[in-house]
């Protein structure tokens, strides 16, 4: 048996090395840095919980927390609703469904930076496609949003952009919908359930594990939103799209406050764990797994 242990470790050695060198040691170092004053050029100096105390008092930090929560609370549920709507449309018995499925999924294939470049233009207040559409619908000029150049509309603009990717979730929901046994719908119909009742009491419970999964993944991804704001708005106007991870990145690599940024990273980890736990626990009553 001894030789099997050797074989096992040998096959896993790159993984073990990676876990230790690129995860476990950096995690320990990061924890230490978060308790230190660490301006990039000087060695870290222990300051206890000072970084965390400062975070609690930092208005810009709280502002970035608010922005990120607003973004997550808007984009995740809306993305799931749009995705579910697309999935229901795709679950019809009409020809060409595969083509439609491909069309809805295609936006999720667009590289993040190319997508950002595209949406900066789509959301342009004067010549962008979105506002051109609103004007064509004769929306009064005062109502036409300024999107990325208006502090009140920049975040909703990024939410709108994220909805273009709702087809990713839709593909998952369609697969789940097709696994729902037909007999369940027939039984519900025999019992006199109308379409909306069948949707609420059969469809939703049957695909609830997938809904929960996409919700949790969306949540985790949403809290880590970074590149789009970095490319499209740099956090502006007036910090209205300053996401948590953008603030963290700036603290670390433009202000060179590595200790402070490390503390932010740990708070982020805590937020993600707490949010995931809350969603999992509050949904455990509603999510039904097949026995």
């Amino acid at each position: 048996m001894k030789s099997r242990t050797f074989t096992g470790i040998a096959f896993c050695s790159p993984l073990i090395f990676g876990l230790v060198a690129f995860t476990i040691l950096p995690v320990l170092a990061s924890l230490w840095f978060s308790l230190c004053n660490y301006p990039i050029l000087d060695p870290p100096r222990f300051v206890g919980a000072a970084n965390y105390v400062e975070l609690a008092r930092d208005d810009r930090f709280w502002h970035s927390v608010r922005n990120t929560f607003t973004y997550v609370l808007l984009s995740v549920p809306l993305g799931m609703i749009v995705g579910l709507g697309l999935a229901l449309l795709l679950n019809q018995k009409v020809s060409g469904i595969k083509v439609f499925r491909t069309l809805f999924f295609l936006p999720t294939v667009v590289p993040l930076v190319a997508n950002s470049v595209l949406w900066v233009r789509l959301l342009n207040p004067q010549q962008g496609l979105v506002n051109t559409f609103f004007r064509a619908m004769h929306m009064p000029e005062a109502w036409v949003p300024g999107w990325l150049s208006d502090e009140h509309w920049a975040l909703p603009g990024l939410v709108l952009m994220s909805l273009w990717g709702a087809g990713g979730g839709a593909v998952l929901y369609v697969a789940a919908l097709q696994d729902v046994p037909k007999e369940l719908f027939e039984a519900a119909e025999l019992d006199g359930a109308g379409p909306s009742q069948r949707f609420r009491h059969v469809t939703i419970p049957m695909i609830s594990p997938v809904l929960l999964f996409t919700g949790v993944m969306g949540l985790i991804g949403g809290f880590q939103e970074f590149a789009r704001a970095f490319v499209m708005t740099k956090g502006g106007p007036w910090d209205s799209t300053l996401f948590y991870c953008l603030h963290l990145f700036n603290s670390a690599f433009t202000e060179f406050r590595l200790g402070y940024a490390s503390a932010m990273a740990w708070v982020l980890f805590a937020i993600i764990l707490a949010a995931t736990a809350i969603v999992m626990r509050s949904s455990s009553k509603h999510v039904q797994y097949e026995q």
């Binding site: 876990l19 690129f22 995860t23 476990i24 040691l25 950096p26 995690v27 170092a29 990061s30 840095f33 985790i220 809290f223 880590q224 991870c245 963290l248 670390a252 590595l258 940024a261 490390s262 932010m264 990273a265 740990w266 982020l268 980890f269 993600i272 764990l273 995931t276």
Partner: peptide, 12 residues
Amino acid sequence: TMMLPAQVTMIP
């Protein structure tokens, strides 16, 4: 480790 956001290990 899958739960860990990349931001935690980024600086070290």
